[in-house]
């Protein structure tokens, strides 16, 4: 299936969902006025994607500097879908990437980690030397 690529804007993250490499990337900031509208096509794509080649591992890289509460809800939605897929046999690895000085991002990541049981949830800190 075709990849989904959405360019970042001031208030929405860049989305790169690659069906061939099975690497899904969300990066930037997420505070769109209407989060459900923004994330709808992404959920649609992911639902379709997770229905194919079940059992081939998927990697999700999330690097969000900031996100508002409605985006947090959307992310939780996303993790629910991933949990279900993992439970159905697709190994899912989530890399939650955050700048080491970004406490809020780290804390949110840890909260998400607590909320998820099955998927592999990695906390990945980086500083200025890294990308």
């Amino acid at each position: 299936m075709e990849n989904l690529i959405i360019e970042a804007t001031k208030s929405s993250p860049s989305i790169r969902l690659d069906a061939q490499t099975r690497i899904l990337e969300i990066a930037g900031e997420s505070y769109p006025e209407n989060a459900s509208n923004f994330y709808a096509p992404i959920f649609a794509w992911i639902d379709l994607f997770l229905n194919q080649s079940i059992s081939t591992p998927v990697t999700v890289n999330i690097t969000l500097r900031y996100f508002n509460s409605s985006s947090a809800k959307a992310l939780m939605d996303l993790f629910d879908r991933l949990e279900k897929a993992h439970a159905d046999g697709t190994p899912i690895t989530v890399n939650w990437r955050y700048h080491e000085e970004n406490d809020s991002a780290m804390e949110c990541g840890e909260e998400f980690k607590e909320e998820t049981q099955y998927i592999t949830f990695n906390m990945v800190g980086f500083n200025d030397d890294d990308c």
């Binding site: 900031e29 500097r65 900031y66 508002n68 700048h99 000085e101 406490d103 809020s104």
Partner: peptide
């Protein structure tokens, strides 16, 4: 509220942070 924690700024445009 979290408004002040979430304010972006500084060199790296990271949130102000609770700390």
């Amino acid at each position: 509220t979290d408004g002040i924690f979430d304010q972006a700024g500084g060199n790296r445009r990271l949130p102000f942070g609770k700390r």
